Every structure is written in structure tokens, then in C-alpha cells.
Amino acid sequence: MKATFQVPSITCNHCVDKIEKFVGEIEGVSFIDVSVEKKSVVVEFDAPATQDLIKEALLDAGQEVV
């Protein structure tokens, strides 16, 4: 499964690193693409990962998800 999250609070590479760390810890996540320019995060994943778990990880990383 693939999901795109709009994350307007992404401003720098530190944000990218933190997002990759938090989302990458979720079992089932196979790909993460964070774009500072587009302020988006694209995640490819399989169970047990879910969109809700990914959104929670983004929030835990200090990001706003819309």
C-alpha cells in the first residue's frame, strides 16, 4: 500500500531525518520519501503498518499532518 501525507511543518533536513527515523521504526514500512519542497511524505507499507500508525509517528516526530 502507498500513502501520501501533507506535512506543512517540514522545513529542513533535520525534519527529514527525524521523520525517516520515526516512520522507519514502524514494522511493515518499506519505503519513505520526504520532500521539503512539496512538504509531503510518501510511504509504502504493508501490514502491520497502517496509515494511522504512520500519522501517529509523524506527530511523535513533532510534525503537523493535514
Rank of each mutant, 00 (worst) to 15 (best):
A57L: 03
K38N: 13
E27M: 10
A57Y: 02
K18R: 10
L59E: 11
A3Y: 11
I26K: 01
H14S: 14
V65M: 07
K38I: 05
F5Y: 08
D52P: 05
E64K: 11
S9R: 04
K55P: 03
A57F: 03
V66R: 08
V66E: 08
S9N: 09
E20I: 15
I10T: 04
A47I: 09
V16S: 05
N13Q: 15
E37Q: 11
S40I: 14
E27K: 09
E25S: 14
G62T: 09
K38S: 10
T4E: 10
V43L: 00
G28W: 04
S30L: 12
I32A: 02
E25M: 13
E20K: 15
N13G: 14
Q6P: 04
S40R: 12
S35T: 04
D60G: 09
C12M: 08
P8C: 07
K39S: 07
H14Q: 15
I32L: 06
L58F: 04
A49N: 02
H14I: 15
Q6W: 15
I32Y: 02
A47H: 13
I32T: 03
A49K: 02
V23P: 00
E64Q: 13
L53K: 13
T4Y: 14
I10P: 00
G62L: 14
D17F: 13
Q6K: 11
Q63S: 05
Q51M: 15
K2Q: 09
V41Y: 02
D52V: 09
F31G: 07
K39R: 11
I54F: 02
I54C: 04
K55T: 08
L59A: 08
I10L: 09
G24H: 06
I10R: 00
T4W: 13
A47M: 10
V43S: 00
V36G: 04
E37G: 06
E20L: 15
V65Y: 06
L58W: 02
E25W: 08
A3R: 04
E27Y: 08
E64Y: 13
V34M: 04
T50I: 02
S35H: 05
V66N: 07
F45S: 01
I10C: 13
L58N: 00
K18F: 06
V23K: 03
I19N: 01
V41R: 00
P8Q: 07
V41H: 02
E64R: 12
Q63I: 14
D60R: 15
F5V: 03
V42G: 04
E44A: 08
A61K: 03
T50W: 02
N13R: 14
S9F: 13
D60E: 12
N13I: 15
E44S: 09
A49V: 04
K21V: 06
V43G: 00
I26V: 13
V42W: 08
P8T: 09
Q6C: 14
S30G: 07
M1T: 08
T50E: 02
E56Q: 15
K55L: 14
P8I: 09
F31Q: 08
I10D: 03
M1Y: 13
P48N: 03
V16Q: 06
F5D: 03
D17L: 13
F22E: 04
C15K: 06
C12K: 07
E20A: 12
Q51R: 14
K38Y: 13
K18M: 10
T4P: 04
V42K: 08
L53W: 05
A3C: 12
Q63G: 05
D33E: 12
C15M: 11
G28L: 01
D33A: 10
P48H: 03
T11H: 15
C12G: 14
V29Y: 03
A61S: 08
K2R: 11
A3G: 05
L58D: 01
D46Y: 14
V16W: 07
F22Q: 06
P48C: 04
E20C: 10
S40H: 10
Q51D: 06
K21L: 07
A49I: 00
A61T: 04
A61Y: 05
Q6I: 14
V66I: 11
L53Q: 13
K38E: 10
K18D: 06
V7W: 06
V29D: 01
L53C: 06
G62Y: 10
V23N: 02
T4D: 05
V34E: 03
S30Q: 10
F31H: 12
V34P: 02
I10E: 03
V42T: 13
H14M: 15
Q63W: 15
V66C: 14
A57I: 04
E20G: 07
V43T: 00
A57T: 04
E25G: 11
D46Q: 13
M1A: 07
E44F: 15
E44G: 11
E20H: 15
G62I: 14
D60P: 03
H14A: 15
Q6E: 09
K39L: 07
V29N: 03
F22T: 06
F22N: 05
C15Q: 10
F31T: 11
V42H: 10
F45D: 01
I10K: 00
V23S: 01
V65K: 04
E25H: 09
G62S: 06
I26W: 02
L59N: 08
F45T: 02
N13P: 12
Q6V: 12
I26C: 02
V43D: 03
V42L: 11
F5A: 03
V41F: 03
A49W: 04
K55G: 04
D52S: 11
E44T: 14
P48V: 02
E27Q: 12
P48G: 02
V36M: 08
A57K: 06
V43P: 00
V29S: 01
G28R: 00
L53F: 05
E20S: 12
I54R: 00
D33H: 14
V41T: 01
V65E: 05
F31E: 05
K55S: 05
E20V: 15
V41S: 03
G62R: 04
D46V: 14
D17Q: 13
E37F: 10
I32V: 11
L58K: 00
D52G: 08
L53R: 13
Q51E: 14
A3D: 05
G62H: 05
A61E: 02
E64A: 08
A57D: 03
S30H: 13
D33T: 12
G24D: 03
I19P: 02
D60L: 15
A61Q: 04
T4I: 12
V34L: 03
Q51K: 14
G28H: 01
V23F: 02
M1P: 04
G62M: 14
S35P: 00
A49S: 02
L58E: 04
L59T: 09
T4N: 06
K38V: 06
K38R: 13
N13H: 13
D17C: 08
S9T: 12
V16D: 03
F22C: 05
P48L: 02
V41W: 03
T11S: 11
M1H: 13
K38M: 12
F22S: 08
T50N: 06
D17K: 13
D46K: 14
P48M: 04
A61C: 14
I19G: 02
A61W: 07
C12D: 13
F5C: 04
V36N: 03
Q6L: 14
H14T: 15
Q51A: 14
D17R: 14
T11K: 12
V23A: 02
A3S: 08
H14R: 14
